[in-house]
Design a protein around this nucleic acid. Structure first.
Lengths: 204, 204, 204, 204
DNA sequence: TATGAATGAGATTTCATTCAT
DNA sequence: GATGAATGAAATCTCATTCAT
């Protein structure tokens, strides 16, 4: 019974995340959230200061988990290209699996554009942190002599572009959009991406 | 006189595009548009059925131009890898230059904003057409034996991801976000991208 | 027809003043105002930025008129006490008549306490100006040797207290409150007050 | 233990009075009161039926004390004008001292605030009783031949106006409003007022 | 007694759209 | 064609009060 209090809060958070993700921030009315959560309008404002506040909380809640996933990178020293490729595959797979399990959050992160200023920059901050984590991985690999030394800022930007773009097509594309892509598993997608990551279109 | 009428129309379109792009669809009120255009509120509705309608028109207006740019691809048969790389560079440069000149439109297209269903799918359609154009190019290259035969759907998705992601970081990132990237010219950016496109992180 | 535009505005102002005065600022809802004015809710916000704004405008509108009335004071030099008494009577009569004609405004001024900060200080400012005008009159009279020299700040405060208190009882007391007082005319009231003003309870 | 319960009640009453007085009835939320009193929202409703009820109780609580102060008037027969003046001075001083010690209550009484109908008339009743007490004093003085016989209703109204107006300026004026006045003691203020009360502006 | 979560009616304000001129 | 006043549905948020524990 006592838990229900904080359950209520969690429930409203979950419902809001799903609605924001599916219909966008503006089209999701507070009245929609409370209706879906089965509580009164006033209850929303008992738990959250405003619509803006709940959006911010949603972002911050999952940020740590997401960064955690990516920070697992190429931590240990790897000797061969094959090992690094393998590690990269695992990393991307983790990333895609996290995204699948946190579909709504990732959609908010990637496409959740039109929101209050504050939410917008919270989103941007999170994405920047993600990109920085990748950059660290790349720099590490260069230090280990596995990757050729190039501008790691550009390289992480390229990498993030790939990940974000493919994620978007994989999970958030309208039905007929990328059918072939959407049927892949996280593992397959990761493999495909890693192949391109290291060898480009020309491949080996 | 008649021209002036259609000038009015164009002006409202231009103003609306800029506002949509800079502040988003919802935060841009019809009253903002007319204020910026220097016309009366009612005038807007003489030229456009609704806010939704003007957004749709904006999308459709530039679509053809954009596709045109990309369709220039690897039209003529190219023999060597170097030639194809060169052609790709030129193509990307054109794309980035178009994007620079049509910054507001491209932002609308990429960040998609939170809009009415109809606008959203117009945006999606345009992006799909763009991706298809790239896919054609890739298929052509495979037929000519320049690129190894792989799934062209995946490959064009990867390519578009790169282009979109880098474009976003180049033109639409908040100030300090990607300073190093933002100072590049379209040409430099295209080169960097092509390098990765063909050879991946490992490069040559 | 064209006048009707500004008539609308005036009408809403008048209605709002009456409602504020009769039921107070908080109990008067914007919906009450528009209902009484026979316009749509949105129309209110076409003419006024907010409920606070209309209250402020109401105060500022009449301020000048009110000060004007009181500034007529003992302008010309008067020789005898009788003449000054006469002048004072006329002044007070004018003040009471103005108050009768601007009953709602005066009530707002005297009793319109619980409002937004800004309105509150607008009210206070107006009352202070009024008191200052009386102070000027008193100082003038002292210079002319008609009144004994005492602290004019205190004296104007005493005078204003009398005027405000009697006005409140005369115009704004509940029915049975001060029946005897309420039946007086502005002239009679002014006489009574002047008598006390100059000679106190002991009278002559 | 039982005392603590009623202590709670008293504490809530005290806190509510202060908040009502300082910020007004409407701007004081029940949640403000309970927060300041350090109790839960529900607790308020255990002790008081409603916000309106607590306001009413506040008024009634102090009414008797206030009337008591004023009823001390010119009870014993006084022979000379000087004695009456002295007595009046003491009376006013008592009144101002009571007001100083019950600042919040007096503010509620004088500035009346915008409240529910019922509270408003409770306030009015109290003020009427006060005025009646003064009226009794004046009538008594007339019977004793100390004051000239005039309309005692008017005279008590004039007296109350003076007392209320000066009290308001003395205790409740915004900072710079009546600095000179606000620095006076209750005794000084009473003297000033009595001087005017008996002799008017012309004085002796 | 006491708590604090929950309620829901209702207040202010916004804004796309309409309409008389 | 053009104006801008007018509309009203709907959104966010407030707050006195209730209720289960």
């Amino acid at each position: 019974m006592q838990e229900q209090a904080s359950d209520r809060r969690e429930q409203i958070l979950a419902v809001a995340l799903e609605l924001f993700s599916n219909h966008g921030y503006h089209k999701t009315k507070v009245s929609d959230i409370v209706k879906a959560a089965g509580v009164a309008q006033g209850t929303f404002y008992w738990y959250f200061k405003s619509k803006e506040a709940i959006a911010l909380e949603i972002i911050h809640n999952k940020e740590a988990d997401l960064i955690e996933v990516v920070s697992q990178g190429y931590r240990e020293s790897k000797a061969t290209v094959q090992e690094v490729v393998k590690a990269s595959e695992r990393l991307f797979e983790d990333f895609f699996e996290f995204s699948q399990q946190n579909k709504y959050f990732m959609k908010l992160l990637l496409k959740g554009m039109e929101t209050e200023e504050s939410v917008q920059s919270a989103i941007f901050e999170t994405r920047k942190k993600l990109e920085n984590a990748f950059q660290k991985n790349i720099e590490r690999a260069a230090e280990l002599g596995i990757l050729p030394r190039k501008d790691p800022v550009i390289q992480s930007a390229l990498l993030m572009s790939l990940l974000e773009g493919m994620l978007e097509r994989w999970l958030f594309s309208p039905q007929q959009g990328h059918a072939r892509l959407q049927s892949r598993t996280a593992e397959e997608l990761a493999k495909e991406l890693v192949q391109f990551e290291f060898f480009g279109l020309l491949g080996i």
